[in-house]
Amino acid sequence: MSPREQFTAFYTILYREIRRFMRIWIQTLVPPAITIVLYFVIFGSLIGSRIGQMDGFSYMQFVVPGLIMMAVMTNSYSNVVSSFFGAKFQHSVEELLVSPVPNYIILLGFTLGGVARGLMVGLSVTLLSLFFTELHIYNLPVMVAIVLLTAMLFSLMGFINAVYAESFDDISIIPTFVLTPLIYLGGVFYSISLLPEFWAGVSKANPVLYMVNAFRYGVLGISDINISWAFTMIIFFVVVAFLFSLHLLNSGKGLRQ
């Protein structure tokens, strides 16, 4: 395929992915917004008002960046895992497999579809957060870069999950038993400076901590970890996840007999 044809194929996959989650917006865009608003109300307003300040900011201001990232992560992941597994389940993935589209284009298309949904939900949650607190952006490039990289990473992880999944149970096990604990323990609701030294050290093994803190740095200018190190870690994970996903596609794992 010529570069122009490859771009058409990529655009087709991306457009189809966006069309898919927009068609079922009531399932894909509304629930995360409602969930995060409930977090704002309960943890931010009701409980947060009794917690007082955290790292020099009101608890609501502290928790908003983490909750935005939580929405981006879960939605990027769930978009790709459900879309790609659905395509496998209905065998419509064969439309792609018989076509001349290179595997890296297939992967990019699905990944950026997940990124698109993550960003759309992230943006809606950000706008909703303005009803509860004021947001001052400390460093826009950091904020944008980290949210894009995070959405890419979770989209790729969703892709890997979908490749291995053989049933609908398999696409809910990882989010429930791995992602949710990592996100909840990844500094969304608290600063690791509050933890005993040992648990603070353990928390640093959690990749979500780096994403949440880097994003919080972009919004508030505070972070529990070094920003350069956070970027290095996230880019490393994105590259590894991309190469591994590509390897799965090339080998036909779960797709070709």
Partner: peptide
């Protein structure tokens, strides 16, 4: 094919995969 897609979209999407 995707059961939820419209007939015309299935064809246009498939053509897109071929550039």
């Amino acid at each position: 094919f995707n059961n939820f897609e419209k007939v015309i979209d299935i064809l246009i999407t498939q053509a897109g995969y071929y550039g």
